[in-house]
Design a protein around this nucleic acid. Structure first.
Lengths: 228, 228
DNA sequence: GTACACAATATTGTCTACAATTTTGTAGTC
DNA sequence: GACTACAAAATTGTAGACAATATTGTGTAC
C-alpha cells in the first residue's frame, strides 16, 4: 500500500499536521529533540521547509526553538496548562455568546454533522481522527461565530490543549466527548445563551479535571530542579 | 550621527520592530505592497531574513501574505477592528482580575514608572515612543498577571490595535491616555477588582469610540466593491 | 477598433552550499 | 587522579542561486 508519510515534496502544512498529530498522539513525547536534517530526510524535503514547519509549530506553542540549540517538543508546565484553560473559558464564552445571536439553521446542521463524525470516529477507535475532530468542533464553533480573530486565538489554544492532554494523562480519553458537544449545540439552537455558556464552561472544566494538574505541582523542566 | 536604520546585519526582531513602528506611525499605509528585495536592500540583509520578518508580522496580523503575490500591509475591516476590541475586553478583564489578586508593591511601582514614561513621551511629542509605550502599558499589565499565555494573546491584540488606530483616524491621538492607565493601576493597587475591571472596560471603550468605526460601514477591500 | 492569445518581465518560492555556534571528546597539567 | 583548555564533530543559522508563478505589455486576428 502507498504510504503518504514517505511521499516526496510534502507541503509545509502537511508536515506541520503530521508532527502535530504525532505530538497529540504521544508518539512524540514532550522534550523530544527535533533535528532538522533528520526530519528533512523523513519527509523527503529540504531542510528549509522543515524550518518553516518548525517556526509555524513554535507559533502554535507545540515546539520550542532555542537559538543555536535546536527545536524540541514543548513541555508546558502545570501553570501554563491552567492558563490555557483560563483563556479558553474566556474566549469560548464569547464564541458561544456570539453564536447564540448569529447562528442560522445551516450552522446547526454543520455542527450536528460534525458531532456525528466524532461519534463515528469514537466507535472506530481511530485515534488520529478522534484527536483532530474533538479539537475541530471547538474550532468550527469559533469559525461560525463569524470572528476570524477569535478563531485564530482558539486555533492556538486547541493546539496547546492537545499537547497538554497528551502530556498530563489522556489515558481515559473521554477527551471532549461528543455528548457534551451536542448539549452545547442544542442550547445554541434554542438560543439559550445562559445555558449554552454554562454547558461550555462545564465541558471545559471536565476536560481540565481529567488531567493530573494537581499532582506533581512543578515538574522538572531543567536538570537542576530535577536532580537537586 | 550614526543612523541605526541603515546598519547592516540587523536581527530579525529589529526589522520586525522597524516595520511595526512604520505601520503604527502611518508611514506605511494599509494596503502598501512590501517587496522582499526592496526591503532586503533597505535593511542591508538577505531576502531570507526579510521573509522571516514578514511571516512573523503576518502572525501578528500586521501584514497579509498572498501566495505567489507578495506581502501587503493588512487592511483590517470594520468588523475585524470591532472583533479585536471584543477580544481585548475579554482578555484584559482576566488580566486585571488576576492582577488584583497577585500584584505586589513592586509591580505597582513598575506600572507607575511606566505611566510616568508615557507622560514624558506625551509631552515631548515623540510619536514612536507614544505608540510603543501606550501599547506597552497593556503588555506590562499582562506580563505582571503572571500568565505567559495571556501575554502572548495580548501581544497580538495590541499589534492589531496599533494598525487599526493607524487606519481609522488616530488624529486626535488621545490614544490610550496615561490618565486612564493610572486609574486602572490605582484600583489594582487598592485591590478593588470591580472598579479596576470597569475602568479598564471604559478605557478600551474610549479608545474604540475615538475611531471612525460607525461611518463607512464596509470600506472597499477589493476593486469591485470600491468602483461599482 | 476591440478582444484574445502569447511572450517578456518582475517577483515570489525553494533548494543547496557555506559560515557561525554549540556540544562533545581528548590531551595536557597541576 | 581530576580539572582545565583546546580541538573536532555535529547542528543550526545565513546567504546566494535557481525554478515556478503571476502580472504586464504586445501583437495579431476578427
Amino acid at each position: 500500500m502507498y504510504n503518504a508519510d514517505e511521499a516526496a515534496g510534502a507541503p509545509t502544512a502537511i508536515i506541520c499536521e503530521k508532527i502535530w498529530l504525532a505530538i497529540a498522539e504521544r508518539r512524540l513525547r514532550p522534550g523530544t529533540r527535533l533535528k532538522e536534517e533528520q526530519l528533512a530526510e523523513i519527509f523527503s524535503v529540504s531542510r528549509a521547509r522543515i524550518r518553516q514547519a518548525l517556526t509555524a509549530l513554535e507559533r502554535d506553542g507545540l515546539v520550542t526553538i532555542m537559538p543555536n540549540r535546536g527545536a524540541f517538543v514543548s513541555e508546558p508546565s502545570v501553570d501554563e496548562a491552567r492558563d490555557v484553560f483560563v483563556a479558553r473559558r474566556a474566549i469560548e464564552q464569547r464564541v458561544v455568546e456570539r453564536l447564540c445571536e448569529r447562528a442560522n439553521p445551516k450552522d446547526i446542521v454543520r455542527l450536528r454533522a460534525h458531532i456525528e463524525e466524532e461519534r463515528i470516529a469514537g466507535r472506530s477507535g481511530n485515534l488520529s481522527d478522534i484527536v483532530r475532530l474533538s479539537g475541530g468542533f471547538h474550532l468550527l464553533l469559533a469559525e461560525l461565530s463569524g470572528s476570524a480573530f477569535l478563531f485564530g486565538i482558539l486555533r492556538d489554544l486547541v493546539s496547546r490543549t492537545s499537547l497538554i492532554t497528551a502530556m498530563y494523562r489522556s489515558n481515559h480519553l473521554h477527551n471532549c466527548g461528543p455528548d457534551e458537544h451536542l448539549a452545547v449545540v442544542e442550547h445554541i439552537a434554542s438560543r439559550d445563551v445562559t445555558r449554552a455558556i454554562k454547558e461550555m464552561a462545564e465541558h471545559l472544566n471536565h476536560v481540565e479535571a481529567e488531567l493530573d494538574l494537581d499532582e506533581e505541582k512543578d515538574q522538572p523542566r531543567d536538570l537542576r530542579t530535577a536532580l537537586l
